[in-house]
Design a protein around this nucleic acid. Structure first.
Lengths: 347, 347
DNA sequence: CTGAAAGCGCTAACAC
DNA sequence: GTGTTAGCGCTTTCAG
């Protein structure tokens, strides 16, 4: 009639087994496991010992079912090993670990229109308590995501792609990074600065373009034609081949380091010296940037700071549904001057 | 007394709501949702329509609780944006998506001894159905993981760090990559090949070292002293400074591209020409490898193929507990010859 | 092919 | 401080 004490060997121990061994009620075990107060030290100790002895581990599915919360956060991220997105994802993972939440990751594919919607949907399906969107591209068709996203959302390095009830953002700083680069080159004495832009479907690429443009305008400089790249060193190389046709180029701001590296390669191949003839700046500060020839001047992206700040605020929103959103804290810009920039050549 | 038909607006619809609307039993809804057979087409259609109308989504927590399976796979990965680990993680994510499982990611920190054990434990805690270990380092203290890992495990690019019941591996090919590189250099006519090794706590680093060593031995060549690096371009640069002291170096195999790039930088700075005086080969084929100066000869790592093959076999092990393990399929070695290698200089 | 009943292991609300 | 009683929304028997 009554359940026998020992269960099958293949079965995991449950809180009620712990309770039995510790001589308390099952609810008390639950209290101890959740670190609630109002449990005497003695009871707490006994429960912990019993749990240890049995090798008990809490069943998250049961908890989620009973409580309606999964204590997990979902991330939507672009499936690419590009330095920026990959670094940001690492930052998110590091930051999530500190929060005590588990992490669900869903990748999107570049060029897949319904990607973001589908990814968010699958996370909602999994019952995550919050969502991080690290999706640097805006495809069509995100608009109908308005519905049903009733968990807090953190959008990284992009404006919110849809209307949800509780959205926070972090990492909208590309504009400033671009300004720092452009001003560095103008300060060196260059009359103007060319720009090798990233693919314009990426927010970061548009932001950098606008930051560059605004800075030139603010200094009353003419704006040369924009070069178009796709983040790859190969596209930087192609842009460099174009650029050597023009005789008036003395400074180029490439929207990321890889393109800068490809660009420099093309310049060197065609006999231009860097930085004596042309200064080149990248953006990211990838690990090899200091060791290419010439060592690359660039701006560091604050991935970890962005992820940490964003996650702190996301968790706050999850755990305090009615509290005011915490304002973002933009990290300082970190320009790294190396040997790919110099004053313009004398005419 | 009886539960009212409409529930609160904030409450998600349940399968029983769908059943009611479709005029069938709740169990039938469950059958349809799981794609089971023995459901008439008419009933199936009606259920699907009702689900659609209600915006029904299956509750994974409830399913997991009732079935004992979560349909999720956990990944333990080293928290780094290094090209290798990051690319492999992307490959895993892509591959998992095709399987219909959700992905839990847990990062470990380099230097954290209990890292792997803790990470596996937290995944087991979450009730994952299978585990992927993409942990390129072996720290101490992994040995006591033997216990309780009763789900299938896929170990990537490393030998299994512990004894579990059902373990499969994939991506143990560093040895071959190293051989291909070393033979390429010997074929060019170099008398021997120096090696700039990665940190020896990494399996991949040890494998490459051994592959290089075995190849030299097989060709009866003397083995020069090993240079030690840490994967970074900075360490490659330092190794390069050392290397220029020795006069007999004509060929170097760096265990990854970043170190090769740093090494080349040091050689160029001290007046050596690459490849005329010294040939350098990397390993990875990072995206910029073709655009550094000189363009880098390297070996591509088959991350996607490894991840896909591994995951297919992991899922097989999950879903067929008693089946024989499927053998691994090693992808072909892909040597990319560019301009950083040439025959040795005449003496 | 379909349905009824009985839990899965936990938390929530309330008693004591 | 602690225990009792109900479910959470599914899947799993087992009947038809």
């Amino acid at each position: 009639m009554a359940r026998l004490v020992g269960r099958g060997a293949g079965t995991a121990p449950r809180s009620i087994d712990v309770a039995q061994l510790a001589g308390v009620s099952q609810k008390t075990v639950s209290r101890v496991m959740n670190g609630e107060q109002y449990v005497s030290d003695d009871v707490r100790r006994r429960v912990l010992e019993a749990a240890e002895a049995l090798g008990y581990r809490l069943n998250h599915a049961a908890r989620a079912l009973a409580s309606g919360r999964t204590r997990s956060i979902g991330v939507v991220t672009l499936g690419t090993a590009l330095y920026g997105p990959a670094s940001l994802l690492m930052g998110v993972e590091r930051a999530v670990r500190d929060t005590g939440y588990a992490l669900h990751v869903v990748n999107t594919v570049e060029g897949d229109a319904a990607g973001l919607a589908g990814a968010v949907d699958s996370l909602l399906d999994q019952g995550v308590d919050g969502i991080v969107i690290s999706e640097p591209i805006d495809e069509q068709g995100g608009a109908d995501l308005t519905l049903r996203v009733d968990v807090p959302v953190l959008v990284l390095s992009a404006p919110p792609p849809f209307a949800a009830r509780r959205v926070v953002t972090a990492g909208l700083v590309s504009h400033q990074l671009a300004r720092a680069v452009t001003e560095h080159l103008l300060d060196l004495g260059h009359e103007t600065v060319h720009h090798l832009a990233g693919p314009q479907r990426w927010f970061a690429a548009r932001d950098r373009l606008e930051g560059w443009r605004a800075t030139l305008a603010a200094h009353g400089r003419r704006e040369p034609p924009v070069l178009a790249g796709d983040w790859s060193a190969a596209s930087g190389y192609r842009a460099g081949r174009e650029l050597v046709e023009a005789d008036d180029v003395t400074a180029v701001f490439a929207a990321n380091d890889d393109m800068a590296i490809g660009l420099i390669r093309a310049l060197l191949e065609s006999g231009r010296r860097v930085p004596e003839d042309v200064s080149v700046v990248g953006l990211d500060d990838v690990p090899v940037a200091a060791y290419v020839t010439p060592p690359l001047t660039t701006v560091r992206q604050p991935f970890d700071a962005t992820a940490q700040d964003g996650l702190k605020r996301l968790v706050h929103a999850i755990e305090n549904p009615d509290a005011d959103p915490v304002p973002a804290q933009d990290p300082p810009v970190d320009l790294v001057v190396r040997e790919s920039t110099a004053p313009p050549p004398n005419r």
